[in-house]
Structures are given as C-alpha cells and as structure tokens.
C-alpha cells in the first residue's frame, strides 16, 4: 500500500515537472539551439578539430608507449586526450577544449536575453504567469543541456575510437577519470555560458555582447598570465632566497587562479595525469622518500577540489550579477 502511494507520488512529481512552465521553457531553448545554424557550425568545427587531435594522438601514441617503463601503469586512454601530434604539429584534445570550449559557451549565450528584447518576445513571455527568473534560468539550463550532451558524445567518440584502434581494454580507473573530466569540461563551458548570458542582459546589442564575451575570453587565455607575470616579477627583487622564491610562486599562482582558464588547466593536469601529487612547488625534502606511484581518482579530486569550487563560484558570481540586474530591470517594449 505504502509502496504504491510512493509510486503515485513519484508519478505526480514527474508529471508536474513535465508540465511545469520552467521545463517548457527549457525544452524551447534546447530546441532553438539544436535547430540554429550557429550551433551546428560550431558543432562541425569542434567535431573536426577533435577528430584531428585524435588522429594526431594516434600517430604518436606508439612512440609514447615504447618510452614508458613497463612497471608503470600505462593509462593510455588518458594520454589520448592529452598528447599532441608528432613534433607538435597538431594540438591535443585538451588544448582544443580549453580554447574552443569558451567559444562554444559564448556563442550559445551571447544573445540570450537581448534578442528576446529586440524581438519584443520578452514582453509576451513576461506577461505569462511565470516568475521572472525562469527566463534566465531556462536559458542557462537549456544551454547547459545541449553542451553536456555534446561534450559527452565527443568524449565517448574519442574514447571508443581509441578503443577500436588501440585494441587494449581500458581500466575502470581510466574510464571514471575521463567521465569526471568530461563533467569538468561541462562546468568550464557552463561558466562561459553564464558569463555570456550576463553580458546579454547588460548589453542591448547582440554584437556588443558577443564581442565583449570574446574580449574576456582573449584576456584570460592570452593576456592575463602575461599581466600577472609582469606584476609579480616587477614587485620582487632579482636575486631571491629560496623561501622568497616559494612565496613569489605562491603569489603568482594565487593571482592566476582568478582566471577560469588557469583553474581549468589545473583540473585537466591533475585529472589526466594520475601521478600529479600537488599543484604547488615541491621541495626536495618533500620528494625524498616518496614512492613514485599514481593516485586514486578520489585523491586527485581532493587536490583539485578548490579549483572546482572556484569555478562554481565564478558561475555563481555571473548569476548573481544577472539576477540583480534582470530582476530590477523594467520590462518595456
């Protein structure tokens, strides 16, 4: 009796969710994305580059396998994502993802709210009995759904193609690491999506918001590290004691960690290289006596946990800004 009640409760909940206005809006967003020309172009570009990087990895994987000591675990599937082509002619999957992921996020969100405004559809949606935040939230969730789906397909495609070509069965550890890594990519692209949605609320013109999104992306991927380097080195004397050098390194890392790109690169490094034990500088004292072995996934996750939380925090900051602006904004035609 109780069980049946429970079942009914679940059914009701699912039914309510399926007919809830929020889900209706999310469905519309997903549909719009999948049907849009813009998304399909990006899809083709990213797909092509990933197949390219896979090709590059496969061409140099043999060499790599020869170099590795037999005593060490191979983790060849993780390498598939990280190695570049012979002589660095083709970049690796992770390089592509760090570079193109933000572009995907920006492309999917830059006209989220301002196009609704310019089309005057916002007035129509807002005169329906739904809370205002549904609109922003559905834009984000809809976009994230599509991104997640896409990233998973891409990851699994590479994974399965390598399996077909290499022929070695992957270990469970490798598989879970890759799944976790794919989740991290989604989080990373999700941040850029949130940022571009915020920009689409801030700017009336879609072109302005797209350009400013790209500007932020360029700033973080190119100029930010240069800027931090400049700042930290100029504020320090040339010859330093060892302890000061440590301090300088720490300070640099702290500043760099404000950038989502840097956070993501750290996450990537630790997740795809199980032998990484720490992200900071290590002294010889600390190293001496350690046995070179690889870490568990849970241990690797412990190392990058601050980075993951940092990335989530950045997403929340974007959301906070968009909420405070959008909820106070007057909706006018």
């Amino acid at each position: 009796m109780e069980k049946r009640l429970n079942k009914e409760k679940w059914q009701n909940m699912i039914q309510q969710f399926a007919t809830s206005p929020f889900w209706v809006l999310v469905q519309k967003e997903i549909r719009d994305h999948v049907k849009s020309v813009r998304f399909n172009i990006l899809l083709v570009i990213i797909l092509l580059t990933c197949v390219g990087s896979l090709y590059a990895a496969l061409s140099s994987v043999k060499e790599l396998a020869n170099q590795i000591d037999t005593s060490e675990q191979l983790m060849i599937y993780l390498r598939m994502f990280a190695i570049s082509g012979e002589g660095g002619t083709l970049p690796s999957f992770i390089t592509f993802m760090t570079l193109l992921g933000p572009l995907l996020g920006i492309a999917m969100g830059f006209d989220a709210i301002n196009s609704e405004k310019n089309n005057r559809t916002i007035l129509r949606i807002m005169s329906q009995p739904i809370p205002r935040d549904y609109l922003i939230l559905s834009k984000f969730v809809g976009g994230l759904f599509v991104i997640a789906y896409f990233v998973f397909i891409l990851g699994m495609l590479i994974f399965s193609l390598s399996l077909l070509i290499i022929g070695l069965p992957p270990t469970f550890e490798e598989f879970t690491r890759i799944i976790v890594y794919l989740f991290m990519i989604i989080l990373y692209v999700g941040f850029w999506l949130a940022l571009s949605i915020t920009l689409s609320i801030l700017f009336k013109q879609a072109a302005t918001s797209a350009l400013s999104g790209i500007a932020v992306w360029l700033f973080f991927s190119v100029f930010y590290s240069i800027l931090v380097n400049l700042l930290v080195t100029t504020s320090m004397p040339d010859d330093l004691l060892a302890t000061d050098q440590m301090a300088q390194h720490e300070r640099m890392a702290m500043l760099l960690r404000l950038s989502p790109n840097y956070l993501f690169s750290e996450i990537t490094t630790v997740l795809l290289n199980p032998s990484y034990r720490t992200l900071g500088p290590v002294t010889f004292d600390q190293i001496s006596g350690t046995i070179p072995s690889i870490l568990d996934l849970s241990q690797s996750l412990t190392i990058i946990w601050p980075q993951v939380v940092g990335m989530l925090a950045l997403c929340f900051v974007c959301f906070l800004i968009s909420y405070t602006i959008f909820m106070r904004q007057e909706i006018r035609s």
Binding site: K35, R120, L123, R124, S127, S333
Partner: peptide
C-alpha cells in the same frame, strides 16, 4: 491577457 502594440513572435 495582454496584447502589446507590437506582438513579439518567435520567428523560427
């Protein structure tokens, strides 16, 4: 029910 002066439609 609200009918605005310019009805916004989802064009696609």
């Amino acid at each position: 029910g609200f009918l605005p002066d310019h009805v916004g439609v989802y064009e696609n």
